[in-house]
Computed example of a mutant assay.
Amino acid sequence: METSEQNMIYMNDAENFNDPFDCLGVWWDTSILKDISEKQGLNFSVDYLDDHMDVMFKNALTPLKITCFSSELYNLPLWGNYAESGSGFVVEYNFRELNIDSEFTKYLYPVIYREEREDISKVLKLLFEVAVKEQGEFHPLLRLLFYKNLIKHISWSYEREWRLLFLENDNHVKLPIKPTAIYITDRCNEGNEDCLKLISQKLNCDLIRLTPTRNNKSFIFTEALVQD
Rank of each mutant, 00 (worst) to 15 (best):
Asn94Thr: 12
Glu115Ala: 14
Lys106Leu: 11
Glu118Val: 13
Arg114Ser: 10
Cys68Asp: 09
Asn59Gly: 02
Thr105Trp: 07
Tyr82Ala: 02
Trp79Ile: 09
Glu72Thr: 13
Leu108Pro: 08
Asn59Lys: 11
Gly88Leu: 02
Trp79Tyr: 08
Asn81Tyr: 15
Ala83Phe: 03
Tyr82Arg: 02
Lys65Cys: 08
Tyr109Asn: 11
Phe69His: 05
Glu72Ala: 11
Ala83Glu: 04
Glu84Tyr: 03
Tyr82Ile: 00
Glu116Tyr: 13
Gly88Ile: 01
Glu92Pro: 05
Ile112Cys: 10
Pro77Phe: 03
Glu115Ser: 13
Phe95Gly: 08
Asn99Tyr: 03
Glu97Pro: 07
Tyr93Val: 07
Tyr113Ala: 14
Arg114Met: 12
Ala60Ser: 15
Leu78Arg: 02
Leu76Ser: 07
Glu118Ile: 15
Arg96Glu: 15
Phe95Arg: 12
Arg114Thr: 12
Ile66Cys: 11
Cys68Trp: 05
Ser70Asn: 05
Thr62Cys: 08
Tyr113Trp: 12
Pro110Gly: 04
Arg114Asn: 13
Gly86Arg: 08
Asn75Glu: 04
Leu78Thr: 13
Ser70His: 06
Tyr74Cys: 14
Ile100Gln: 12
Tyr109Ser: 11
Glu118Pro: 00
Lys106Tyr: 10
Pro110Asn: 03
Asn81Ser: 11
Asp101Leu: 04
Pro77Ser: 03
Arg96Val: 02
Phe104Met: 10
Phe104Ser: 06
Asn75Asp: 01
Tyr109Thr: 07
Leu78Gly: 07
Arg117Ile: 09
Val90Pro: 00
Ser87His: 01
Thr105Gly: 04
Tyr107Thr: 04
Asn59Glu: 15
Asn59His: 01
Phe69Trp: 14
Ser70Ala: 12
Tyr74Pro: 06
Tyr113Gln: 12
Leu64Asp: 02
Gly80Phe: 10
Tyr74Glu: 15
Leu98Arg: 06
Tyr82Pro: 01
Glu103Ile: 11
Phe95Lys: 13
Phe89Gln: 00
Phe69Lys: 08
Ile112His: 04
Trp79Pro: 05
Glu97Ala: 10
Pro63Tyr: 00
Phe69Met: 00
Tyr93Arg: 10
Thr105Asn: 12
Phe69Gly: 07
Thr105Met: 12
Glu103Ser: 07
Pro77Glu: 06
Ser70Cys: 08
Ser85Gly: 06
Phe95Tyr: 13
Tyr107Pro: 00
Ile112Arg: 10
Val91Gly: 08
Thr67Cys: 14
Phe69Pro: 05
Arg96His: 15
Glu116Trp: 07
Arg114Cys: 13
Asn94Glu: 15
Cys68Leu: 09
Tyr74Phe: 13
Gly88Met: 05
Leu76Pro: 04
Gly88His: 05
Ile66Phe: 02
Phe95Thr: 09
Glu103Gly: 04
Asn94Phe: 09
Thr67Phe: 11
Tyr74Ser: 14
Glu84Phe: 00
